[in-house]
């Protein structure tokens, strides 16, 4: 007789299923990404996945933990995909390897493995690499001049020289640079008028990628894999501050829609801040966490020195999770006022 403790019934759920659903939800975004910005991202995903699995296996082996259940849980793959999607698609292969390995080895396993990491591993990878290799992390493929797959691969694997023609800034960065260079003489409207770069709302091509993430996120919410609290409050935080500044000075600040659909906003809202391990757990805590992350991401992205602020915002909020959780414990049954 197997030793079972009650309840004898369990729902057909597992960490693996949760992670697989998260991966599935990423597919629309990835498809748009590969279609509009070249298939190099698929290569990056492959590299990141392989690195993550190898690093995970090595760490499990070192800790004498069984490989099967932990490799199979899919959490390392989710981390890998998020890293591949957050990094520039033309980043050299070793950058992705370094980032992913750092995320799995340091950010995840040195803190105790699955469920124990206080920081989002993918965001740690992004932060570490952008601090260490700022130039490489800011080279994004030019949006209107699509390179073919072979050229992109050659870049990723260092076979061809990194030409400026093949890389550029993201719309977010472009806007920031243009505004800075213009020193008040240009306005957001004139800069973003270039539809070839900025598309209709937030950047040619990028808006579709973001829409893909949004679609996946809504599907996840419908499947009850993620709750609405963090995602919605993240988007609300970003909308609120960008909207306020935009209303105050539309010439200098882009509209909320631009910010929601550019950079890592959508990916962050539905796949990064929703990470349960490093996020808040109480309903009110989730609202505070998401809202603050949205707010901070905007501030760092617009006023800070980095092209995007989602990673730093999330990491900073990860630090605050224990204290937020402590002070937002919900009242229990029978103890409500």
């Amino acid at each position: 007789m197997d030793f079972i403790t009650p309840p004898y019934l369990t729902q057909n759920v597992s960490v693996r299923r949760v992670m697989l659903q998260v991966l599935a939800a990423l597919i629309p975004g990835i498809a748009a990404y590969a279609w509009l910005l070249g298939p190099a991202v698929l290569m990056q995903i492959a590299i990141a996945t392989a690195t993550a699995l190898l690093a995970e296996a090595a760490m499990l082996k070192l800790q004498d933990k069984p490989l099967g259940p932990f490799l199979g849980d899919g959490s390392a793959i989710v981390t890998a995909w998020l890293i591949a999607l957050a990094f520039p698609p033309l980043a050299p292969w070793w950058l992705i390897v370094v980032g992913t390995a750092f995320a799995i080895v340091v950010a995840k396993h040195l803190y105790g493995g699955l469920g124990q990491n206080p920081f989002n591993p993918a965001m740690i990878a992004f932060a570490v690499c952008i601090v260490s290799f700022p130039a490489l992390m800011s080279q994004w493929p030019p949006i209107n001049a699509q390179a073919n797959f072979v050229d992109q691969l050659a870049l990723v694997f260092g076979q061809s020289p990194r030409l400026d023609a093949l890389s550029g800034a993201t719309p977010l960065d472009a806007l920031k640079t243009a505004l800075k260079l213009g020193e008040g003489s240009t306005s957001v409207a004139t800069v973003t008028a270039d539809a070839a770069v900025f598309g209709r709302i937030a950047g040619h091509g990028w808006e579709w990628v973001a829409a893909g993430y949004l679609l996946g996120g809504i599907w996840l919410w419908g499947r009850k894999v993620i709750g609405w609290h963090v995602s919605m409050s993240f988007l609300a935080g970003m909308t609120l501050i960008s909207g306020a500044l935009w209303l105050w000075n539309p010439a200098h600040f882009a509209n909320p829609l631009f910010h929601l659909f550019s950079g890592g906003s959508m990916l962050g809202a539905f796949f990064i801040v929703t990470d349960p391990v490093s996020g808040c757990t109480t309903p009110r805590g989730k609202l505070i966490f998401g809202f603050s992350a949205g707010l901070l991401a905007y501030l760092i992205r617009v006023f800070g020195g980095y092209p995007d602020g989602v990673a730093f915002a999330v990491l900073l909020l990860n630090l605050c999770v224990p204290i937020i959780d402590l002070y937002t414990q919900p009242p229990i049954f029978g103890m409500k006022k």
């Binding site: 030793f3 403790t5 004498d64 933990k65 069984p66 259940p69």
Partner: peptide, 9 residues
């Protein structure tokens, strides 16, 4: 104390 910890097989 619940006894089933994951142990390497």
């Amino acid at each position: 104390y619940p006894v089933f910890e994951i142990k390497p097989a």
